[in-house]
């Protein structure tokens, strides 16, 4: 059952261009509220499962291992460790990101880093001045070496 007619002349190929203007709100939820309030106070919080003793970033109100409800949030230590780095160059500008993990925590934070940060380095977040914080990850300017 082939189609006999095929367009061989590219000038006869027609198309119509359109776009989908979509706008969303993403609710932070109970765990997100705790986490981002922590960020506004200059703290990084993880959710901790009482049953299997595991802690998570991003935080959740349920444990991915045992499915228990999580109500405990703990502040992670002051420093994280860089386990991966990626760098995009735009002309002379370098945009560097890292995956930062925290001791005893499952998951971590992907964020921009200072120019001299390498894999294996211990880093800490640099927060915007308190009055400029909005309660999202852009409140962290970048991570710098400790």
């Amino acid at each position: 059952m082939p189609i006999n007619e095929r367009i061989c002349d590219v000038t006869r190929i027609r198309n119509w261009q359109d776009s989908i203007p979509l706008h969303y709100l993403y609710t932070t939820g109970i765990a997100g509220e705790r986490f981002f309030k922590g960020i506004m106070q200059g703290k990084i919080l993880a959710s901790r499962c009482k049953r299997c003793k595991e802690s998570f970033i991003p935080p959740r109100i349920y444990c991915v291992n045992c499915y228990s409800k999580i109500e405990e949030f703990v502040e992670v230590g002051g420093r994280g460790r860089v386990v991966a780095v990626a760098e995009r160059r735009k002309g002379r500008k370098r945009i560097r990101y890292a995956f930062v993990r925290f001791e005893g925590i499952k998951g971590g934070i992907i964020h921009s880093i200072d120019d001299d940060v390498k894999v294996g380095d211990y880093v800490k977040p640099v927060f915007l001045p308190r009055e400029k914080r909005k309660g999202d990850l852009s409140d962290i300017t970048f991570f710098v070496k400790t």
Binding site: A84, I110, S138
Partner: peptide, 15 residues
């Protein structure tokens, strides 16, 4: 919100 895109995510995973 941290400014991550798919190529950045893939590059980090790769590293």
């Amino acid at each position: 919100t941290a400014g991550v895109d798919v190529d950045m995510l893939a590059a980090l995973e790769m590293d």
